[in-house]
Write a protein that binds this DNA or RNA. Structure first.
Length: 495
RNA sequence: GGGCCGUUAGCUCAGCCUGGUUAGAGCUCCGGACUUUUAAUCCGGGAGUCCAGGGUUCGAAUCCCUGACGGCCCA
C-alpha cells in the first residue's frame, strides 16, 4: 500500500537501488553482534574506570536503527539504537576507505552494524569508531520527526511501532508492564500456585455481568462466546483438587471504550482452597507492593497529582460505611429499588433504564466513592444483590464476604469467599434471571452455567478467589492515566 | 448517548477569530561545503486532496451545514 509522501519515499527507493547496484545487499541474512548497545556502554565504563578517559576498548560489533545522522564530508557521526540504549558511531573515510561510500546511502531509520573500538569524544560521548560497517536493513519510509517524536495520539495507537521507535516513555511503559506480569507470576508461583489455561471460547459466557462477543464454530455448528471471565473454569479446577490455581489471560467484554476500559483486557484470577476473602486481601496487598518494589524499586508511585503508596496494610473499610461517608446514603435504609433510585437522584446520580438494587448500589460506588479512593483501599462486605458468586456473611446474610480493591480512583481487584453450596448457587443464578425478566432490566446479569453447577455438586472446598485487572495495575505503576498507554494495540474504530 | 476541542507537507506546528497575491516555519528529503559532530552548521532546492462532502461569496484553509476519525469532559 503506497500512501502519501512521494519524494521522500522515492529517494529511499533510489538509495535502495544504489546499494544493490554497488553489490551491497540491503536486507542481508546474518549479522553477528558481540554486545547489545547497553552492554557495550557498560563495557566502556568499566574500562574507563580502570584506565581513565583515554581508554580505547578492544573492538566490539554493535547493531541498531539509525536515529540521527550528521554527515561532515570525510567523516560522519550517527546514533544507532536498540532496546537497551543508543550509542554514537563515528565513520571516518581514512579508516573505512571504500566502505565509507556507504555513508552516502544511509537514511534515518535504516539498520546498521558497526565494528570497532569504543572511545570517548572530547565532548565526552562514548563512541564507536567504525573500522567496518555492515548495512543491515533498509527503511523505505521516513521516521517521525526526531525531536518531537510522534505525538498524534491516534497514530501512536494505530502505528504503535512508530511510537515505540521514537518515544522512550512508550517503550518504558510496556517494559514495565511486562515486568509487572513477570513479578506477578513469580509471586504466585512462590506461594505454590499453579498457572493454568482455560477456554477462551465458551458455550456460556458466565462469571461476570457483561455482554459477551458471540461467534460460531462451523464444524460443531455451535454458537460460542469469548469468555468474559475465567472464574467458573478455575473453580472447576478447585473442585478437581488443584487447590491453588491462577490464570493471567485476556477476557472480552462487549462494552464501551474509555480511559480505563478496553473491550479486551488482561485479567488475573486466582483461587485458593481453604482460604477466605480476608486471606485474599492480605495476599493482594502483599502481591501489589512486592510487584511495585520488584519492578520500580519502591512502593510509591506518582499518579496524576498524587503519590500512591502500595505498602501494606491498605485501608480497610466497610463498603456500606464508605458509601455513607461519601454520599450520605445508607443503602440498608433503602431496601426498595424505587426509593433508592429517588434518593440517588436527589444527590444528582441518575441511572438510565430499569435497574436492580444491586446495580444502583454499584452506581453509587462508581460515581461517588471510587473517584475518592486514591490511596489503596479495600471496600468490604458487599450487598448480596450484586454478588451472585460470593458467600453470605454468617452474621448478616444480606451481605457477602466480598471486597474490592481500589487505587488511583479505579477498581483494581475484586474478591470473595467463593460460594460453594451448589443449591444456593443455582438459586442465585435463577434469582438473577427472574429479576431480569420480572423487572425488564436493561442490564447484564450473570448467566447460569449448568456444567459449572454440575462441578459444584461434586463438592468444592471453601475457597478464596481473586480477580485483578492487569491493565489498570500497569496504569498505576507506570503513572499512565489512560488504559491505551499500557495496551500495545488498543481497540480503535476502523478507518 | 450529550457537550467541548482537534484534523494544514512524511513528522511537529503556525495561518482561521477579522475571507483577498503563488498556504508558511522547523525537522525530514534532494544538490553543494565541511575529519570530534551531537536538535551539527552554512549555501541552494524540493515537497500540500488545508479530513470528506455540501453551502454562502466575485473569491473559502479561513464563515455556515452534514459526515468521518480522534481527544477531553459528562452520562
Amino acid at each position: 500500500m503506497v500512501r502519501k509522501g512521494g519524494d521522500l519515499l522515492l529517494s529511499r527507493r533510489e538509495k535502495f537501488q544504489r546499494l544493490r547496484s554497488k553489490g551491497i545487499e540491503p536486507f542481508p541474512n546474518h549479522y553477528r553482534r558481540t554486545h547489545t548497545i547497553g552492554e557495550a556502554l557498560a563495557y566502556f565504563k568499566s574500562n574507563e574506570a580502570e584506565e581513565g578517559a583515554q581508554t580505547r576498548t578492544s573492538p566490539v560489533a554493535l547493531a541498531g536503527r539509525i536515529m540521527s545522522l550528521r554527515g561532515m564530508g570525510k567523516a560522519t557521526f550517527l546514533n544507532i539504537q536498540d532496546i537497551s540504549g543508543h550509542i554514537q558511531v563515528h565513520l571516518r573515510r581514512d579508516l573505512l576507505e571504500q566502505e565509507y561510500e556507504l555513508a552516502r546511502d544511509l537514511d534515518l531509520g535504516d539498520f546498521l552494524g558497526a565494528q570497532g573500538p569504543l572511545f570517548l569524544t572530547h565532548t565526552g560521548e562514548i563512541t564507536l569508531e567504525a573500522s567496518q560497517v555492515t548495512f543491515l536493513s533498509k527503511a523505505m519510509r521516513p521516521l517521525p520527526e526526531k525531536w518531537h517524536g510522534l505525538s498524534d495520539v491516534e497514530m501512536r495507537h494505530r502505528q504503535r511501532y512508530l511510537d515505540l521507535i521514537t518515544n522512550p516513555e512508550a517503550r518504558r511503559n510496556f517494559q514495565v508492564r511486562s515486568r509487572i506480569i513477570g513479578a506477578m507470576r513469580h509471586f504466585l508461583d512462590a506461594k505454590g500456585f499453579m498457572e493454568v489455561e482455560t477456554p477462551v471460547l465458551v458455550p456460556v459466557a458466565a462469571g461476570a455481568m457483561a455482554q459477551p462477543f458471540a461467534t460460531h464454530h462451523n464444524s460443531l455448528d455451535m454458537d460460542l462466546y469469548l469468555r468474559i471471565a475465567t472464574e467458573l473454569y478455575l473453580k472447576r479446577l478447585i473442585v478437581g483438587g488443584l487447590d491453588k490455581v491462577y490464570e493471567i489471560g485476556r477476557v472480552f467484554r462487549n462494552e464501551g471504550i474509555d480511559q480505563d476500559h478496553n473491550p479486551e483486557f488482561t485479567l488475573l484470577e486466582s483461587y485458593e482452597a481453604y482460604a477466605d476473602y480476608s486471606d485474599v486481601m492480605v495476599m493482594v496487598e502483599q502481591m501489589v507492593s512486592t510487584i511495585a518494589q520488584e519492578v520500580l524499586g519502591t512502593t510509591k508511585v506518582q499518579f496524576g497529582e498524587n503519590v500512591i503508596d502500595f505498602a501494606p496494610p491498605w485501608r480497610r473499610v466497610s463498603m456500606r460505611e464508605e458509601v455513607l461517608r461519601c454520599t450520605g446514603i445508607d443503602f440498608q435504609d433503602f431496601m426498595d429499588v424505587a426509593a433508592l433510585e429517588e434518593k440517588m437522584k436527589s444527590i444528582g446520580i441518575h441511572v438510565e433504564g430499569r435497574s436492580s438494587r444491586g446495580r444502583l448500589i454499584d452506581k453509587l460506588v462508581t460515581a461517588s466513592v471510587e473517584p475518592q479512593l486514591i490511596q489503596p483501599t479495600f471496600l468490604l462486605d458487599y450487598p448480596l444483590d450484586m454478588s451472585p458468586l460470593a458467600k453470605q456473611r454468617s452474621d448478616d446474610p444480606s451481605l457477602v464476604e466480598r471486597f474490592e480493591g481500589f487505587a488511583g480512583g479505579m477498581e483494581i481487584a475484586n474478591a470473595f469467599s467463593e460460594l460453594n453450596d451448589p443449591d444456593e448457587q443455582r438459586q442465585r443464578f435463577m434469582d438473577q434471571e427472574d429479576l431480569r425478566k420480572k423487572m425488564e432490566l436493561d442490564e447484564d446479569m450473570d448467566r447460569l452455567d449448568e456444567d459449572f453447577l454440575l462441578a459444584l455438586e461434586h463438592g468444592m472446598p471453601p475457597t478464596g478467589g481473586l480477580g485483578m485487572g492487569i491493565d489498570r495495575l500497569a496504569m498505576l505503576l507506570t503513572g499512565q492515566e489512560s488504559i491505551r498507554e499500557v495496551i500495545l494495540f488498543p481497540q480503535l474504530r476502523e478507518r
